[in-house]
Computed example of a mutant assay.
Amino acid sequence: MNLIIDAIAWLLSGDRSKSDSIPEALGQHLLLTVISVLIAAAIAIPIGWLVGHTGRGRDAVVALSGAARAVPSFGLIILLVLLLGVLHKPEAAVITFVLLAIPSLLAGAYTGFEAIDRATIDAGRAVGMTELQVLWRIEVPLGLPLLVGGIRAATLQVIATVTLAAYVNVGGLGQYIITGLPLRRFDMVLGGALLVAALALAVDGLFALTQRLAVPRGVRAASDRHSAPKTSRRRPVPA
């Protein structure tokens, strides 16, 4: 309990032990996260949509995604720093976070298409829609909630892993944890962990709302009708 009080006192104080201020560290953390997720999305989403639309290459994508999940982030970021050189630490960090985000984005993209009732897609083709129209007017809108779920998972994973960027002096909220450990400043370590957790919870809440809003109105209305309690009429009792 005393440690928690000390961590809160550290957060409220101006003592950063030669580290960046909290707003600066938060900005660095968010910048690394946004850049990494955007690059990963530009790579993974088109591939996931192609796999979900055509049904081809799913096994290969699943295998590659599983292999990417198994790569240790900390080891990868150190390896890339050694390969690219100390002058390219930010690039090494971003590449690591991009590889981390791709599996969740891929899964969200193609599973969103796979979850769509095939009768809906066949109906679109039956009325004369082209494959491009089926993609943008049926599959993308109906698959958007699961895609947002994939972006949500990828973003939270990256937010947690960006903490490691401080180990190679790239910045972020992890610098308080990395700096505090050798100094035995456990109030600083816990304070940094609380900041990362608070950021993750805030971003998760925003994505939860976005995922709810991404459901098409017609689907949401149908779901609400099905979930509404049915009122049974009571038969009049004969006198």
Rank of each mutant, 00 (worst) to 15 (best):
V98L: 10
V98K: 09
V98C: 11
V98N: 08
V98I: 14
V98H: 09
L99A: 12
L100Q: 04
L100M: 13
L100P: 01
P103Q: 12
L106Q: 00
L106I: 03
G108L: 06
A109E: 01
A109N: 06
Y110R: 07
T111Q: 15
G112C: 04
F113S: 02
E114K: 06
E114C: 02
E114V: 10
A115Y: 15
I116D: 06
R118Q: 15
A119K: 09
A119P: 00
I121S: 14
I121H: 11
I121Y: 12
D122G: 09
D122M: 11
A123C: 07
A123Q: 02
G124S: 13
G124P: 06
R125G: 13
A126R: 08
V127H: 09
V127Q: 10
G128P: 00
G128R: 07
G128Y: 07
G128E: 07
T130V: 06
T130F: 01
E131G: 11
E131D: 15
L132W: 14
L132P: 04
Q133V: 01
Q133E: 13
V134P: 11
L135Y: 04
W136H: 15
W136A: 11
W136F: 15
R137S: 14
I138Y: 10
E139I: 13
E139H: 10
V140D: 05
P141D: 03
L142V: 02
L142F: 03
G143E: 01
G143K: 00
G143D: 04
L144V: 09
L146D: 05
L147Q: 08
G150Y: 03
I151P: 00
I151Q: 03
I151H: 00
I151G: 05
R152A: 03
A153K: 03
A153Y: 07
A154N: 08
A154P: 04
T155K: 03
T155I: 12
T155H: 05
T155G: 08
T155L: 09
L156T: 12
L156I: 14
Q157R: 09
V158G: 08
I159A: 13
A160K: 01
A160Q: 07
T161F: 05
T161V: 11
V162F: 12
